[in-house]
Write a protein that binds this DNA or RNA. Structure first.
Length: 568
RNA sequence: GCACCUGUAGCUCAGUAGGAUAGAGCAGUGCCCUCCUAAGGCAUGUGCCGGGGGUUCGAUUCCUCUCAGGUGCACCA
């Protein structure tokens, strides 16, 4: 980064009308190595000097004398190309990384600021399936990234634990809840509760009165009927226990499980406030907030039967969170189909006069589908998240048994690598892309994959063990100016930018792409340059580089939510 | 009908706040373990960057129209 600033400074010296900021925006990274490390195109100056950009570039390049940080500065066509002094560069980057250790890549931009990340949020009594993988893994990574940058982070699992569906479940249980069913639910909660739910929905067709009964029980639940509450609590607990199995596998923890039910008593106040602020309109018995003038569709905030809706609850939740946590950002990791909902919700909060509406962000992502169509719980088109993780672990175990039979902790490593592969895959592309779930892709471990990065990391660990020297930054840096080492170090320099990019755009894939490319560069270096060698100076220098790569890969994987096995 | 998202190599995708010959992985082919972990490295081919117009010295990138796929549009969440 500092070298880039240096380039900008040099440029402002020869072009004194240029501000440092302007100069910085002009700087580019040349497409090819032999064009230098930084470049400034001169098209912009053509008008001013009435000369061709190529002539300007060569004139500018000549104005620079010898400069310590740069090996040479020369023009190539309309560009001025800067070649950094390799030794200088290498030394600066590695010393910095060595000094900052596991904080290399972090900055303190989040100090004193609280950020809420709401993610995962499965529905109680419904399967935790492949459709939940995205919010869960993306959300966890965003939390880790913000946490690393010094923010005070709060993770919230906004459980879907409220609504008429629970009236149905309670009613169904009261009808068919034999001791055998109780036992089955304890053993296999989600599947059995889902069965009850599906059966109830089916029987509504022949027994229309069931619909009324479900509503009755939901009302009872709301008004504090003891039995209803006891059943609801039980459903919630057994479901959560099952979800926690997956969270444990993924190593995910939440600070709060305040779900929909948590806000159920906070709705009247929201309605009152909307009323006071003259935002409500009656429409066919329902209460709405008109939003058409803002290019949105009107939002229903209260049904004609008086009960509230999703948006109303989210407004209550946002207000509660502002009051409780005084957030700097309130992040919702929820699928793209809910874009309109979040736009309406944000607009309403804004209309209520809360400036912090702009601090609420919807981090959306594309939809997962299956090869045989859209996911559908009812139609049995589900892939359970737990099955995906377990299959990935199994496959990893097979590979380990094939190739490394004397590895210790095989089970642990298989778990770390298998799950790492799934996480990595999920965070490899731009969030917004839709994708089709495929076992082949999920279970492929070659090329740009999680195992590839973990393998490279394990390789660095192995080298550090075999090196048997104390790593310090007092080495002969000229050893690291060859092409392969230099490329690795240039890559290392980019870590900070990758983390910041991921932060700014709420896009973990900046980090995913980054660590894969770092691993690639390191593997090239590894194949070209023997590291653990007789010559102690060469060994020390190359091991310092190895150690730095080791640190960055480890931190990068951690930010994605992956484990980092030291042998595999 | 209206709105939003996506469209780049056979497949899956990158493409850095418009710039120098558009890049990776997979799949295919051929090399490299007497050498630090071969889940690795090297070599090799592939592109009307969906299409038309426009802005610009310069467009995969910005604007506009258009085609294709996906998603959302009031009492589900």
């Amino acid at each position: 980064m500092d070298f880039k600033i240096k380039v900008a400074e040099l440029f402002t010296q020869v072009e004194n009308e240029l501000s440092l900021e302007e100069a910085l925006t002009l700087i580019e990274i040349p497409p090819s190595q032999d064009m230098g490390d930084y470049a400034v195109p001169c098209f912009k100056f053509a008008k001013k000097y009435r000369k061709s950009p190529a002539v300007i570039a060569s004139e500018i390049a000549e104005k620079f004398g010898t400069i310590e940080e740069f090996e040479r500065i020369e023009s190539a066509g309309p560009y001025v190309n800067f070649f950094v002094d390799k030794k200088h560069f290498v030394e600066k980057i590695l010393k910095e990384a060595f000094k900052e250790k596991e904080n290399y890549g972090s900055t303190n931009i989040g100090k004193g600021k609280s950020v809420i990340v709401e993610f995962s949020s499965p529905n109680i009594a419904k399967p935790f399936h492949i459709g939940h993988i995205r919010t869960t893994i993306i959300g966890n990574s965003i939390y880790k990234i913000f946490n690393y940058l010094g923010y005070n982070t709060i993770t919230i699992n906004h459980l879907g634990d409220y609504g008429t569906q629970f009236g149905m479940l309670i009613s169904a249980y009261k009808k068919w809840g034999t001791p055998e069913i109780v036992e089955a639910i304890e053993k296999n909660p989600i599947q059995e509760l889902l069965k009850l739910y599906v059966r109830y929905n089916k029987e509504i067709e022949t027994h229309p009165e069931y619909k009324e009964e479900a509503r009755y029980w939901f009302k009872e639940l709301e008004t504090g009927n003891e039995e209803a509450h006891r059943l609801w609590t039980w459903f919630r607990e057994v479901s959560l226990k099952e979800f926690n199995r997956v969270y444990d596998m993924l190593n995910i923890k939440f600070d709060s499980y305040a779900g929909e039910s948590f806000y159920s008593d906070k709705m009247p106040l929201v309605m009152e406030e909307l009323e006071d602020k003259c935002l409500l309109k009656d429409s066919e018995g329902a209460k709405i907030v008109e939003l058409q003038q803002y290019g949105l569709t009107d939002a229903v905030v209260q049904k004609s039967d008086g009960s509230t809706l999703y948006v109303t609850r989210d407004i209550a939740a946002a207000m509660y969170r502002k009051k409780t946590y005084n957030f700097y950002k309130n992040i919702y990791v929820v699928g793209a189909p809910q874009k309109l909902h979040f736009e309406q919700w944000r607009k309403i909060i804004e209309l209520m006069g809360y400036e912090w509406a702009e601090d609420c962000v919807h981090v959306m992502f594309g939809t997962v589908s299956l090869e045989d169509g859209v996911l559908s719980t009812r139609q049995g088109r589900v892939v359970f998240l737990e099955d995906v993780l377990n299959k990935a672990i199994e496959k990893t175990m097979d590979i380990i048994n094939e190739r490394n039979t004397n590895l210790e902790n095989k089970e642990l490593v298989a778990k770390q690598v298998g799950i790492g592969a799934v996480i990595f895959q999920e965070l490899f592309n731009n969030r917004i892309k839709d994708y089709m779930f495929s076992w082949d892709k999920t279970l492929s471990f070659e090329g740009e994959t999680g195992p590839y990065v973990q393998y490279t990391y394990a390789r660095t660990c192995s080298l550090l063990r075999k090196g048997e020297v104390e790593i310090d930054d007092n080495v002969d840096y000229s050893i690291l100016t060859d092409k392969e080492a230099f490329n690795v170090i240039k890559k290392i320099e980019g870590f900070k930018a990758a983390v910041l990019g991921a932060h700014d755009k709420y896009e973990p894939f900046f980090i995913t792409r980054y660590i894969v490319s770092l691993a690639q560069e390191f593997n090239r270096f590894y194949h070209e340059c023997p590291i653990v060698v007789e010559d102690i100076e060469v060994k020390k220098a190359r091991l310092l580089l190895t150690k730095t790569v080791n640190n960055v890969l480890k931190k990068g994987m951690e930010l994605l939510g992956m484990e980092t096995p030291e042998r595999m």
